[in-house]
Amino acid sequence: MVEITHLDASPDTRVPKASVRAADGTAAAATLGLNFGSAEQRGETLVVRIRPDEWYLLGDGAPAMAAGLDLSGFASTVDISHSRTAVRITGDCAADTLSKLGSADFSDHMTPNGAALGNGIAGVTCDIVRDDQRGVRSYLLLLDGSFITYFLGALHDAASEF
């Protein structure tokens, strides 16, 4: 079974999202920490080090966390709540579904819970966070919002066999 949810389908459920860019050695980088390619839930915010110099802050706590950062040195933030849209895919067959559309290895040893990566899914570049929900395999996919109609169609089609 696979469950696919477009989290930003309505203004009420839209996930606040911020991108933080910070060079090595800045206060913001030190505060956010994490290894590149990993994610961690901190209170109401999922913090993802999605690139060596970029973090995503996702969730209701994101605006406040972004606003509270010390942006001295070479650091900046951008509100990406409306640029990147969030889709969650949950279930035992979630990895099998993604493997139909994307080339990354979603197995536990290559993409454990808390891992983050970029991969093309059905031809759309996605930022993907493995973010299991109560022990059930789950992935948060962040993609350019303009693709969402097409993307959900492709994702549901791929999931239909499970």
Partner: peptide, 12 residues
């Protein structure tokens, strides 16, 4: 020696 861009990963 050639140039590549990690366009779907780290963007480096």
């Amino acid at each position: 020696l050639e140039n590549w861009y990690c366009s779907s990963g780290c963007r480096r």
